[in-house]
Design a protein around this nucleic acid. Structure first.
Lengths: 121, 121
DNA sequence: GGGTGACATCAACATGATTTGATGTAAGCA
DNA sequence: TGCTTACATCAAATCATGTTGATGTCACCC
């Protein structure tokens, strides 16, 4: 999982992301793959929030919010911090950076790909 | 649609992508939202290809490939060039760049969000 | 200790997207 | 002109993921 921002795993090998690997796509889908999840990401990009805030601000059910937070957490994009009975979440910029780099590399690659055309049999 | 790489629309307003708008998420999903589509993107990142190549290389059905190409084309990530009975497709780096910028901005925003925490009632 | 509230998890259901095969149109060739 | 091939589109079937309500655990408070 070169591009997947899993907690602490392979974060020292960004150079290997010269090609868009399945991990880049999977990471992007984990981050944005659903409108509600994207909304959660947007809210967390503004400030740390606990589940109750996210429930109030999105209007979604608590269990739905928890489900999406789990997806984001397991993908490494957010980290959780229990505070008494509340759990605060924050976006991890370092994880987003990996995604940025991955797509930037794909962009660079696409520049060169334009001049290459395989003949059809 | 500030972040959606629609052909020629609003490409002069990247500065407005300081916040991850719904369009950033939608664009990402259009690009990577499905394993086959991500595979197509990866292949097109290497070289221009026609539908018949993509069918051969992915093993997917022609109509499935056409469907995904349509999604990518309508989202502005690829452009089509009919060549006789063949249609060649290429990735548009300029469209990928917008996505890169959008996520980079989200990353920057997330840096500041870390220090902000809303109290729970 | 008992009651309340936050929230993670579970299982069933709903929804939206992908896949499939059929079909029509256009290009190439004899 | 007729035949073959590439591929875009359509509608139905299939599949994956999101949503829901219930439940259990834990933290807080009186």
């Amino acid at each position: 999982m070169l591009m997947s921002p899993v907690a602490g795993a392979d974060e020292d090998a960004p150079g290997h992301a010269a090609v868009a690997q399945p991990d880049l796509a999977e990471a992007a889908v984990k981050l944005f793959g659903d409108p509600l999840r994207a909304e959660i990401v947007r809210l967390l990009a503004r400030e740390q929030m606990c589940t109750c805030h996210l429930v109030d601000d999105t209007g979604a059910r608590q269990s739905t919010i928890s489900h999406h937070l789990r997806v984001l957490r397991e993908a490494g994009f957010i980290s959780a911090e229990p505070r008494g009975r509340y759990t605060y979440y924050r976006l991890r910029p370092e994880a987003l950076s990996l995604l940025t780099v991955g797509i930037a590399n794909l962009t660079a690659q696409a520049h060169h790909a334009q001049a290459i055309r395989r003949p059809c049999v």
